[in-house]
């Protein structure tokens, strides 16, 4: 055998990193609640090491290290909370009064009712937009990935659409679609309501993003899956339909959710074209009550709808995976 295999480090004599633990535990004193046990443990580790009781020194050193990590984790949280309390109380509660003043025009149930009425528009717009984006983006992604020389123009058009609508700011697309199409008076499109124009604009913008998500998912499916499907005699289209896309969609649900949350929030943009949705109504309330509480209330509404959706999707993914995988 080589020398390499013969070289030995006697395990029992390895020195614990007592000094590191000591330094870390002194820093931990910034959060004394866990800092003190950390320091005590590290001091004991040093004593044990001096006494030659390496095993005990290691044990106490490890305890000191654990306490130090607790100091970091919980200490940071506590100091952050302290910061928040200070922020909301300094200058005689200015911040609190600005964002959470529930009196005057805002104290009434009417205010909430008005906001909810606006929010219902946001909800309708994003539900429609999300439903359409789900299908439209998949179609774009599939066109973008069509094989063969003959389909080059289709690939090009799909890629151009994606590039274009990812580069233009969403609010600009909104202006162009809403005001542009209203004036252009095109057949069919001229009968759209403003909200429908808004849905169209959001679909165009988010369709470009989401189709790239789909594309990444489709490309992530290993070629051996395609080989297996084609070897059974399935056509390219059948292979996509039954083998590739179902796996790709499962894989991209988390980033898809990400984009949909983005879409939900961007429904606030449509206040810019005069729709009386949540943000616009919040602005009115603020003006009449001279605070920013309306914005805080609007923010709460968005949070209230987004978090349950996120959890529900996560649960859906879990149950699907549980079906297919061991453990």
């Amino acid at each position: 055998m080589s020398d390499f295999a013969r070289t030995e480090v006697p395990v029992a004599r390895r020195v614990p990193r007592v000094l590191t633990y000591r330094t870390a535990s002194i820093l931990s004193l910034l959060f004394p609640f866990t800092g003190i046990p950390a320091l005590l443990a590290s001091l004991k580790a040093s004593r044990m090491q001096r006494a030659g009781r390496i095993e005990d020194a290691r044990h106490d050193g490890e305890r000191a290290r654990d306490w130090c990590w607790y100091s970091l984790g919980y200490g940071l949280l506590v100091y952050f909370l302290v910061f928040l309390v200070i922020l909301f109380t300094i200058r005689d509660f200015t911040v609190s009064k600005t964002f959470f003043k529930v009196e005057g025009a805002l104290s009434s149930a009417k205010a909430w009712k008005s906001l909810l009425k606006g929010f219902w528009i946001n909800i309708q717009v994003f539900l429609w937009a999300e439903g359409i984006v789900l299908v439209w983006a998949l179609l774009v992604a599939i066109l973008r990935l069509l094989p063969g020389k003959a389909c080059k123009p289709i690939r090009f058009v799909a890629a151009a659409y994606i590039d274009l609508f990812r580069s233009i700011p969403a609010i600009l697309v909104l202006y162009i679609i809403v005001f542009g199409l209203q004036t252009a008076r095109l057949p069919i499109l001229e009968d759209f309501s403003v909200n429908q124009y808004c849905i169209l604009a959001l679909v165009l913008v988010y369709g470009a993003y989401v189709s790239e998500v789909y594309r990444a998912g489709i490309e992530s499916i290993h070629w051996s899956q395609v080989a297996a499907a084609r070897s059974l005699g399935l056509s390219y289209g059948q292979t996509m339909q039954y083998v590739v896309v179902p796996q790709a969609v499962r894989r991209v649900i988390p980033p898809l959710l990400n984009d949909f949350i983005g879409l939900q929030k961007d429904t606030a943009l449509i206040s810019a074209v005069g729709t009386l949705e949540l943000l616009a109504r919040a602005r009115f309330l603020n003006n009449s009550a001279a605070t920013l509480t309306g914005y805080a209330m609007a923010a709460i509404l968005f949070i209230v709808i987004t978090i349950p959706m996120t959890r529900a999707t996560e649960r859906l993914i879990k149950s699907d995976q549980k079906k297919m995988r061991v453990g």
Binding site: S224, A228, A229, Y242, Q247, R250, M324
Partner: peptide, 13 residues
């Protein structure tokens, strides 16, 4: 013509 692959390539879904 059927083919069987080294890594099975079953459809996991």
């Amino acid at each position: 013509v059927g083919i069987v692959f080294q890594s099975f390539n079953l459809f996991p879904h």
